[in-house]
Amino acid sequence: MVGSIFSVLLFPGFLFVSVLALYSEFIDRKIYARLQNRVGPPWFQPLADFIKLLAKEDIVPEEANRNMFNLAPAFALCAAVTAFLYIPLWSFNSLCSFGGDSIVVLYLLTIPTLAFFIGGWYSTSLFARIGTVRSLTQLVAYEVPLFMGILSAALLADSWSLRDIAFFYTQHPLYILLNSIGFVVALISLLGKLEKGPFDIPEAETEVVAGVFTEYSGRNLAFLKLSLNVEMVVGASLLAAVFLPFGLNANPLAGFFFFILKVSAIVAILSLMRTITARLRIDQMIRFCWKYMAPFAILQLVINLILKGVLLR
């Protein structure tokens, strides 16, 4: 009992993932800055920002639904952290694991977006409302390719369990290459999920101020930002577990090192992608997702289906 409380709250649960989230925010911001020929923030900047926000006044708009407004950040953070518990990090065993946990993780990752929607909608600000509508519209566009990308990898491994998927690809390392289309599709969809790079439409600063986050301040904003960063870590470790399951059978220390490396690498790729593109319009984003990403995800699915039927009989 004490052991599981320790694992859920401290390591590798809430505290660890929060630290990791701040770390990946630092990596993201630093690389973004260096790619733009700037110096970038010092290592403690994300933590300092977090603490500063905690100390600030919490303002709830008069017209807003107080409960919903305050609950949304907690919802988002809890869902993202819970998803983390199901992902194999540096060994095949994750904290919680069962036969269909890949589906659960994907759905838990959708909850933060819905929580942002609730928070933004009930804050009754016009900008926040436009932001929420945009983030839901965007959800429909990126979710399908992301699911298909990850599930086609699961299809080849013949399991819905992340643990078995990772185990399968460690056994057959060459099959990882077969999933490269799905990996790229999932990476780009992840940008949409994290509302980053060309897909930061819901919080486009120059159009809708901060979108969903417009009315948030203080503690609530700190937790919203943290949950976005946790989402980034969870997304990165999910992709790492499914598409790059190296070093899972090594000893825990090496495995841990590999895990941090993989997460950093994926975060770095995400920062690179957001550095080199302009923000798309919502209609262009949806067209892009359905015209290019979804067909490629289907292509991956078909390839894996054929492979499954022919190669692994």
Binding site: Q36, N37, D200, T206, I276, T277, A278, R279
Partner: peptide
């Protein structure tokens, strides 16, 4: 203009 279309990299380079 780069900033307005969400392309801050262009902003940073041109201003540099």
């Amino acid at each position: 203009a780069g900033h307005e279309i969400g392309f801050d990299t262009l902003l940073m380079y041109t201003w540099r």
